Amino acid sequence: MSAKNFQGLKTQAEGAAKDAANAFGQATQDAVNQFTEASQKAIDKASKTVQDGVEKATGQAAEAVSGLGKKCGFKK
């Protein structure tokens, strides 16, 4: 095998290795982005659930206090 052919093969192998590394890096970044997006959606959903629960509990507490005030004669 001539040195020129060997150099050509070496260049092709290096190019293929760089392409593979770039593809792997992009696939890794895509996976990280998907995980980040899914995590953010889960956090948003959990936050919404907690917020809804707090609002419901606050409403129920206000009703209870109002009912207690009526029973004690503070409100009509």
Rank of each mutant, 00 (worst) to 15 (best):
A31R: 14
S2T: 01
N22E: 04
E14Y: 06
F74D: 13
F24A: 15
V54Y: 07
I43N: 07
Q26A: 14
K41L: 08
D44K: 04
F74R: 04
G15V: 04
F6E: 11
Q34G: 08
G53H: 02
V54C: 03
K56D: 10
D19C: 03
Q34P: 00
S2W: 01
K76C: 05
E55I: 03
G67S: 14
N22T: 04
G73I: 01
S2R: 00
N33M: 12
T58P: 00
Q29D: 14
E14D: 11
A64Q: 05
T11F: 10
Q51Y: 09
G73L: 00
N22R: 00
K70F: 00
A38P: 02
F35Y: 15
A3Q: 09
D19W: 00
T58L: 09
Q40V: 05
D52R: 03
F6K: 13
G8Q: 15
A62I: 08
Q12L: 15
K45F: 14
A3S: 05
A3G: 04
T49L: 05
A27W: 05
F24S: 13
D19M: 06
Q29Y: 06
C72V: 08
K71G: 01
K10H: 08
Q12I: 14
K48C: 07
A27H: 04
A57Y: 05
A38T: 13
T58H: 05
K70S: 03
G59C: 05
A57G: 03
G15L: 11
G15D: 02
T58S: 14
A20S: 04
Q34M: 06
N5R: 12
F24D: 15
N5Y: 09
K45T: 11
N22D: 06
T28V: 04
A46R: 08
L9V: 03
A20F: 01
F35M: 13
V54T: 10
A61T: 11
G69N: 15
A57S: 09
Q29K: 12
Q60V: 06
K41H: 07
A20R: 04
T28K: 07
Q60H: 08
F6R: 12
A64L: 08
Q51A: 14
A31E: 13
A20V: 00
T49G: 06
L9Q: 03
V54M: 08
A13S: 07
A57N: 13
T36I: 11
D19I: 05
T49E: 15
Q12V: 11
K18I: 07
E63I: 02
